[in-house]
Design a binder for these strands. Structure first.
Lengths: 336, 336
DNA sequence: ACAAATAATACAAACGTTTGTATTATGGTG
DNA sequence: CACCATAATACAAACGTTTGTATTATTTGT
C-alpha cells in the first residue's frame, strides 16, 4: 500500500462507464462532445471523468484512429539558436492545425538521425520535418518512409523547404568589395548543400570585379565554436593577411572576432567580418555583426504547411520564400 | 493508384506471419530474438520483415506493454542554450537506459506547460523532467500525475534536482567587494525559486562588509534579451551610478554589456559585470564574462537517474551535486 | 392514443502488438 | 519402440480506445 501514484492502475473509459452505468462508447462520445449523447449524460460523465482523474490513453487512441496529432522535428543541435527559431516557427504553425511538436536531437550524428526518423515513424507522427539532414541523399531516396517528410535546408532533396542560398551571400560579397576590400577570406563549413552556393557566390563576386581568386584565402571550419581558434590562427598567419572575412555562419564569426581580438587585431578596424544566419545574439555582439538573415522561423511555418498539403493530397509545391536579406551592421569597415 | 507511400497500408506482424506461414506470436518472438524460436525460422522471418519494410507500431506495443521507452522533457525556451545543455545531459544518460528523449517547448507559458505535461502523460512516457517549471507550487502538488516527474531548478518542489543557489552568488558578490566595488547593482529576474537565494546572497554579502543596502540599486528584468535595454537605461540613470552589476544571468549580462557600450560606458573599465549560468558564449564575449557555472549537463544526467530510481521503487534521494563554481574571467575590474 | 420519426444509448468489432498457456513436433533414452 | 523431456510453434486473450450498426427510449403529428 501507499504506492506512488504512478504505478497504480490508471482509470480507463471502462471504469467511467461502469461508474456512470453506461456503455464505454457513450463515454468516448461524451468526452468528445458528440451530439449523439444527451446534455445531461455528457455533463455527468465529464464530471465523473474529472473526479476519477481520467487521462486518455494515447496509445489506444492512436492504434484505432491511426493519427497521433504529433509532428516530429529532427534537429542536429539544440545548442544552436538557429534551430530554436525553426522550432518556434514550426510550433506556431502546428498549433493552428492543433498538432503538437516533439523534438529529437541528433548531435549531428547520422546514426542518431536515422534512429530519430525510425522512431518517429513508429510513433506514427502526422509528419516529420528534418533540419539539415546529415545522411547522404540515397538514404532519403530509399527511405520510402510511411510518413510524410519534409527537409529544411537540404535543397538537393525532394520535398524540401529552403531559401535562395546564393543571393544573400553574393550580396554580402558585393558589399565587402564595394567597401574597398580586395583580400577577402572565405570560411566554409561542413559538407552539405549550403557549401556550394556560398562558395560560388564568393568566386563569382571576385570574378565580377576582376579580383584574382586566391585558394590560400579559403578555410575549412568544422561548425563547432571551439574550432574557431584554429581557423583564426590560420587566417592570421596567411601570406597576405585578408582585410575581411566572410564567415561560415554567425557562430563562426563570433568565435573569430574573439580570437582576433585576443591576437590584438581589432574588428572592424583591422579585419572586417561578415556572418550568415542572423542569430539573435548578432545584435549584441561587439561590433554588431553584418550578416545574411536566414528566415528559419518562416521556414518552420512553411514546412508544416507543406506537410499539411502532403497529408491532404494537395500538390506539393515548393513554397515561395522571399530572398534572404542582408542585415548591415557595423562589423564591416570601409577602406580606401 | 500511385498514391504516396505514406497513405498506403503499413505491413504488420500479421502480414509477415502470413507470408512466413507462421503464427503472429512467432513473428514477434523472432523479431525480438527470443530463444523460443528456431534459428532458421528467426532468420527467415527477419529477412521477410526487412523485405516487406516492416515498421513496428509503437501504439500497439505501448498499449500492451505499458512502456513507451520515452522520457519527456519540458523546457520553457529552446532558444536559451542553457536548456540545450540540460537536454544533452538528459540524452546521454537516457541512452544508457535505452530510452529516447522527446522535448516539448513551452515558450514560458503556463498553459503550454500544462498541456505538455498532460500530453506526455497521455503518451505514457516512462518519466518526465520539467525544467524551471512555471506553474505555482500547488499545481504540481495536486497533479497526482500517473507519471514520475522530476523538476530541474525548482528547489521548492518535491522530487527536484538542483544546486546550491546561494553559494555561487555569494562568492561572486564577495569577489566584487574584494575588488573594491561598493556600489553594486543587482538585477533580478522573473519570480521563481532562483530569485530569493540570489537576493539573499546579495544582501548578506553587503551586510557582511558593512555596505549599506540601497534599494535603488536593485532592478527587475523580465528574462528576455530585448528587455536589457530598459534595464541598462535604468541603471545608467541612477542617482549614484553603480561601478558593478551582478546580472540575473549571462544573457542579461550580454545585453547589458551591449547597451552600456552603446551608451559610451566601457566594460569593465567603467562598469564591471558578473553573470550567472556560464553559457558557452560567455567565453566569446568581449570582455569574457565572469560568471557562476551552473552545471546543467550534470543536472540533466542526475534527473534521469532520479527518474530511474523512482521507477524502480528505490528511495528517491535528492542527488548530491557539487557546488556551482565561479568562473573568473575579465568582466570585473579591480578598483582602488 | 398510435404510428412514425428521431434521439439516446448499447453492442460488437477492430486497431497491432505481446504474452501465458496449450499443443504439436523432435530427439534422446532405456 | 514406446516413453518422456524438451524444443518449436500455435492459440487466444488482453491492452484501451473508436466507430458503424443495432437497439431501445422519447418525442411528434394526427
Amino acid at each position: 500500500m501507499n504506492r506512488p501514484s504512478w504505478d497504480t492502475k490508471r482509470t480507463t473509459i471502462k471504469d467511467i462507464a461502469a461508474a456512470a452505468e453506461v456503455d464505454p462508447s457513450t463515454v468516448t462520445r461524451a468526452l468528445q462532445n458528440s451530439p449523439r449523447v444527451r446534455e445531461a449524460t455528457r455533463e455527468r460523465i465529464q464530471a465523473l471523468a474529472r473526479e476519477m482523474g481520467y487521462v486518455p490513453n494515447m496509445a489506444a487512441r492512436t492504434l484505432v484512429t491511426k493519427r497521433s496529432g504529433i509532428i516530429g522535428l529532427v534537429i542536429p543541435d539544440m545548442t544552436n539558436p538557429f534551430f530554436a527559431e525553426l522550432a518556434r516557427g514550426i510550433e506556431t504553425e502546428a498549433q493552428k492545425h492543433s498538432l503538437r511538436v516533439l523534438t529529437r536531437n541528433t548531435e549531428g550524428l547520422e546514426a542518431a538521425e536515422r534512429d530519430a526518423i525510425g522512431f518517429f515513424t513508429e510513433l506514427k507522427v502526422e509528419g516529420l520535418v528534418v533540419a539539415m539532414a546529415r545522411c547522404p541523399r540515397e538514404y532519403y531516396e530509399d527511405l520510402a518512409s510511411p510518413v510524410p517528410l519534409v527537409h529544411v535546408n537540404r535543397d538537393d532533396l525532394p520535398h524540401h523547404v529552403s531559401c535562395d542560398r546564393y543571393s544573400g551571400s553574393r550580396e554580402i560579397m558585393e558589399h565587402l568589395i564595394d567597401s574597398g576590400h580586395r583580400h577577402i577570406a572565405l570560411v566554409t563549413g561542413p559538407a552539405g548543400p549550403a557549401q556550394e552556393p556560398k562558395r560560388a557566390a564568393y568566386v563569382d563576386a571576385l570574378e565580377a570585379h576582376s579580383i584574382p581568386y586566391n585558394p590560400e584565402l579559403v578555410f575549412d571550419f568544422n561548425g563547432l565554436l571551439p574550432d574557431t581558434e584554429r581557423v583564426a590562427n590560420e587566417i592570421a598567419s596567411t601570406h597576405v593577411r585578408p582585410t575581411a572575412v566572410f564567415a561560415w555562419n554567425d557562430l563562426c564569426a563570433l568565435g573569430l572576432i574573439r580570437h582576433f581580438t585576443l591576437q590584438g587585431l581589432r574588428v572592424p578596424d583591422d579585419v572586417s567580418i561578415a556572418g550568415h544566419d542572423d542569430l539573435a545574439i548578432t545584435r549584441y555582439m561587439d561590433p554588431p555583426l553584418t550578416t545574411v538573415h536566414w528566415p528559419m522561423y518562416e521556414l518552420g511555418q512553411h514546412s508544416v504547411r507543406y506537410l499539411y498539403r502532403l497529408n491532404h493530397g494537395q500538390p506539393a509545391v515548393t513554397p515561395d520564400i522571399p530572398e534572404p536579406q542582408v542585415r548591415l551592421r557595423s562589423s564591416i569597415r570601409k577602406i580606401s
